Amino acid sequence: MLIHETQVRVYYEDTDKMGVVYYGVYPRYYEIGRTEMIRSLGISYKEIEETNILLPARSLSINYLKSAYYDDLLTIRTIIETIPKVKFPIKTEIYNQQNELINSGEVVLAFFDAVTNKPCRIPEKFRQAMEVHFKSPTD
């Protein structure tokens, strides 16, 4: 399993008139978490796209548990439970400064070949970078 954490500050632009994070901002937080998780593997979205592989979203589910507020420091936990093949499910948990789970969800992306316009397998370099996190200590 691969678990990566990154933090984000809630800016004024993320909130509604009551200072609460607007519900439509959470998918952006999910993307921040997943982008930084990929970067932590030594790869960037940009590098993936330069090989003509795209990662469009297939589905998104979100559970709003508690509110986040202006100036909160949130922890975005990005969780990959299995090495993807074509579909790439990514779970996300967001915690407030009190370490309370305030939001959870899942985005399912798909590896997509921009040249053939068809789904494709995970790029080998990406798979190898992820594989390290899925080996047991006895391997």
Results as ranks from 00 to 15, higher is better:
92 T>Q: 09
57 A>F: 06
80 I>T: 04
92 T>W: 01
78 T>Y: 06
51 T>F: 03
56 P>Y: 04
52 N>Q: 12
52 N>E: 10
92 T>Y: 10
67 S>Y: 12
76 I>Q: 05
55 L>I: 14
86 V>D: 02
44 S>V: 00
50 E>P: 08
67 S>F: 14
81 E>P: 01
90 I>C: 05
53 I>S: 10
64 Y>I: 01
60 L>P: 02
45 Y>S: 06
45 Y>P: 05
53 I>H: 10
64 Y>S: 01
91 K>H: 10
58 R>T: 13
79 I>M: 00
53 I>T: 14
90 I>F: 03
47 E>Q: 11
85 K>C: 09
47 E>M: 10
86 V>M: 08
56 P>D: 06
66 K>H: 13
69 Y>W: 04
68 A>S: 15
92 T>L: 03
73 L>I: 15
75 T>A: 01
51 T>P: 00
85 K>D: 15
88 F>W: 13
76 I>H: 07
83 I>F: 07
84 P>S: 07
73 L>Y: 08
79 I>A: 00
63 N>D: 12
59 S>D: 15
53 I>M: 11
79 I>E: 00
72 D>E: 12
55 L>W: 07
78 T>I: 05
74 L>P: 05
64 Y>P: 00
83 I>K: 06
55 L>E: 09
66 K>Q: 14
49 E>M: 06
51 T>D: 05
88 F>M: 13
69 Y>T: 00
92 T>P: 00
82 T>W: 11
43 I>V: 10
66 K>E: 12
67 S>G: 13
76 I>A: 04
80 I>M: 03
84 P>C: 06
51 T>S: 08
91 K>P: 01
47 E>H: 08
63 N>K: 14
91 K>W: 02
57 A>P: 03
84 P>A: 05
81 E>T: 07
90 I>Q: 04
70 Y>A: 01
